[in-house]
Structure formats: structure tokens, C-alpha cells
């Protein structure tokens, strides 16, 4: 297996992950960052913005590609990872750690995949 998918997290088919425990964070998977290539820009919502599962909440860009980020939950943006504005490469270097994108207050989780189900989908 080429990529790592932490088993305790949940995944969207569109390559976002959601942590199980507080703080509930959202980011993109190792597979996604590799597909994108070097990330050069991340556009994130403002804290307090509402989230709807399956709707786009932000954008991640490489040199030649632009991808929407889709919310894994209904809820609200609690905080955002502002360090990505200066260091978008964190998404590539540490997708499950320092490359997280937003922290969310969850009203209801959307339909999410387990790590194994997600792996099956992408590999």
C-alpha cells in the first residue's frame, strides 16, 4: 500500500478526512495530496461559516489543478488553519497533521467511509 489512512478517522469519497475525537478536524488524504502535486494555495472559509455535508467549503490549488474541498458534516466552522496561507506545502508534507484545514462543530455527520472502504475506492 502506497498511502497511509489512519484507521480511526472517517473519509469522504472526495478525499477529505474527519477526525473522530475533539477537536474535530478536516483535511485531505495522503492520496489526494499526491494526486494534486505541490499545493500552492488553499482557500478556506471564515470561522463561524455554516457547513453542509457534501457542499464545497474551500479550494485547494496546485500549479495545474484546482479542487474543491467538500464538507464531511453539517455544522459550523470553528477555526481554520491559518498557517496554510503562508505554508501551503504543509498539505503535502503532513496531510493528517499540520496540513489540517478546518476545525468543525458537528451537528450531523454526512455519509462517510471507513479507512478500509476509502482505500478500496482509491487504490
Amino acid at each position: 500500500m502506497r498511502f497511509d489512512y489512519p484507521p480511526e478517522r472517517r473519509y469522504r469519497p472526495t478525499h477529505e478526512w474527519l477526525t473522530a475525537d475533539e477537536p474535530r478536524r478536516v483535511g485531505v488524504t495522503d492520496f489526494a495530496q499526491d494526486e494534486l502535486g505541490d499545493v500552492v494555495f488553499v482557500e478556506l472559509p471564515d470561522p463561524g461559516d455554516p457547513l453542509t455535508a457534501g457542499d464545497a467549503f474551500g479550494v485547494v490549488e496546485s500549479i495545474k489543478a484546482v479542487s474543491d474541498l467538500y464538507a464531511p458534516v453539517d455544522g459550523e466552522v470553528a477555526t481554520i488553519n491559518e498557517s496554510l496561507f503562508d505554508r501551503p506545502e504543509l498539505v503535502n508534507d503532513d496531510p493528517y497533521g499540520e496540513g489540517w484545514m478546518i476545525e468543525v462543530r458537528v451537528d450531523a455527520a454526512g455519509e462517510l467511509l471507513s479507512a478500509d472502504e476509502y482505500r478500496e475506492q482509491v487504490e
Binding site: 494555495f41 500549479i63 495545474k64 489543478a65 484546482v66
Partner: peptide, 8 residues
């Protein structure tokens, strides 16, 4: 260039 038509 991601602003531009050939990508976006």
C-alpha cells in the same frame, strides 16, 4: 494560472 480558463 489556476485563475485562467484553460484550467478553471
Amino acid at each position: 494560472q489556476t485563475r485562467e480558463q484553460h484550467i478553471r
